[in-house]
Structures are given as C-alpha cells and as structure tokens.
Write a protein that binds this DNA or RNA. Sequence first.
DNA 1: GCGCTTTTGACAATCATTACCATGTCCGGG
DNA 2: CCCGGACATGGTAATGATTGTCAAAAGCGC
Lengths: 135, 135
Amino acid sequence: MSSEETTVVRNTRQRSAVRDVLDRCEGFRSAQDLHAILRDAGEKVGLTTVYRTLQGLADAGEIDVMRPPGGEHLYRRCSQGHHHHLVCRSCGRTVEVEGPAVESWTEKIARENGFVDVAHTLEIFGTCEECVAKK
Amino acid sequence: MSSEETTVVRNTRQRSAVRDVLDRCEGFRSAQDLHAILRDAGEKVGLTTVYRTLQGLADAGEIDVMRPPGGEHLYRRCSQGHHHHLVCRSCGRTVEVEGPAVESWTEKIARENGFVDVAHTLEIFGTCEECVAKK
DNA sequence: GCGCTTTTGACAATCATTACCATGTCCGGG
DNA sequence: CCCGGACATGGTAATGATTGTCAAAAGCGC
C-alpha cells in the first residue's frame, strides 16, 4: 500500500508575488491587506489564491499566523524556528522573543499531567515606549 | 466630570440559566452549544442573549474564552485569578495550570523591550493519556 | 511542442457573530 | 400594590472573513 501522494509543488507568478510582499512587509498583515497591496502593485492575484498561498506557507512553517481577538488572521514572514511575539497594542510593532524556560516549563507541566505530543501558543501584548511617549 | 455611567445590571431568568448550564458543564462549550443545551432543557433563551450574556461574564472575568484555530469561541466557567489551560486535542479535557515562572518571564521580557501594561495569552495543547491508550 | 497535473480565480456558499428594534421584564418609589 | 422609565430580550437581517466549486489557464517533464 505505498500510495505515495507525490504532490508536486509548482512555482507560479502568484506565489512568488505573495512571498515578495511578505518579505517587504515588516509587521503582521491580513490576507485582505496583502490582496489589496498586490492589486495596487499591479499584480493580478485572486483573493482565493492569496488565502491558499498563505495557508500553504503557514503549513510549511515559512510564515507565522496570529489570531488577534475579534479580528482577521494576521500573517507575517518570520525567522525560522520556534519563537513568540511581543506585540504593541497601539502601533502593532512586533518583537520576536525566545524563551527556553517557557518551552521546558510547558513540556514539564504537560508530562506531569500525562499529556504527550505537546504544542503551545503564547503571545505577549503591551504598549511600547514610543506609544507611551505619544500619549 | 462625574458622568457616572450607572449601568444597573439586572437579574433575569435567562442570565441565571446560562450561568447554571456553565456550572454544570465540565469542559469548554461554544455559544451555540450552550444555546442548544438550554433549548433542550426547556429554557427558552434567544441565541443573541446567550452571546450577550457570555460576553458580559467574560468581561467580568467569571468565565474564560478560548479561540481554537479554525473554530468557534469556546467558553468555560473557571476558577478566579490568572491561569492557563492544558487542553487535550482529542477529547477536549482541560486542566487548569499556573505558572508563576511564566508570568514573571513575560514581565521581564516586556520590560527589557520597553513595553508596559503587559498581558499575555498561553494555551497548551496535547494528547491526554486516555486518548493515547485508545489509539 | 504535448499532455497531464496542478493552480488559478470569479463567484457562491458557509457560518459564527453582531446590529437592529419592537416588545417584554425588572425594580424602586409613591 | 401599582407605575414608569431603564434595562433586557429575541427574532430576523446584516456582516464579513474564510472556504468550496469548477471550468479555464498555466507549469513541468519528456
């Protein structure tokens, strides 16, 4: 039963376009944002394709997804590997942070409760210096 | 400037009903679930009211809200105070956990980056013992 | 270039949540 | 006990992001 699902991934203009935009953008962007940006740049890409591409990239671990309360999904090109985000509530500025201590803590807690195959999500929200100064 | 918004909160049959159901339920439930349960129990409560009540309870800190990837909001009566959840991917069983170390870590990280007024969300997912055994 | 497979994209469908608003209900003062 | 105004309810319509559909349009290996 070697039903090898040899799904060949192809290189298309649209996919590169989405990647490029993500590379150029600093912060998190919604799918609809990216779609609008592409339109403005003259690249004709369908909204459906944007969603599909983003999902693919997310599955491949090339981008990160955030689900802010009461809003759309936000996507961002991120450094490889596991990390978390420190996000400014006001201006959206994002800092990538790592916390080995947290990683091991979640593992420990999970193991203590008999859980295996553990994953976790962690987002930190706050107000950054500049935004405090502006007030 | 004493524009006291004296919003009086009233005690209604519907609100008590929602509370009661939450008390009786163990795990996380969606708003629509709760609505269905109330219907079945003979309590006539509108879906709109269920949503409103849940929002109110969440704002008051009496219940916790979780936003699982790709699904509805889930609500649950929780112990007071700040804590996190260890959730089984398979059966939904939930364990409340506390992590003082994590709390102080997030504070420290945020301060180091000049962020103030810090909050955070943390969910741990895994597969619990029983569900592993069933496989 | 050929053909097969993947991908695209316009549009419709889905589905949880919210807005609206006329009607019902609570509650304190008389 | 009864009234009046404030608050709450709930059916329905609206919203809006995301996903499904499927015929047409590219990629890629040969």
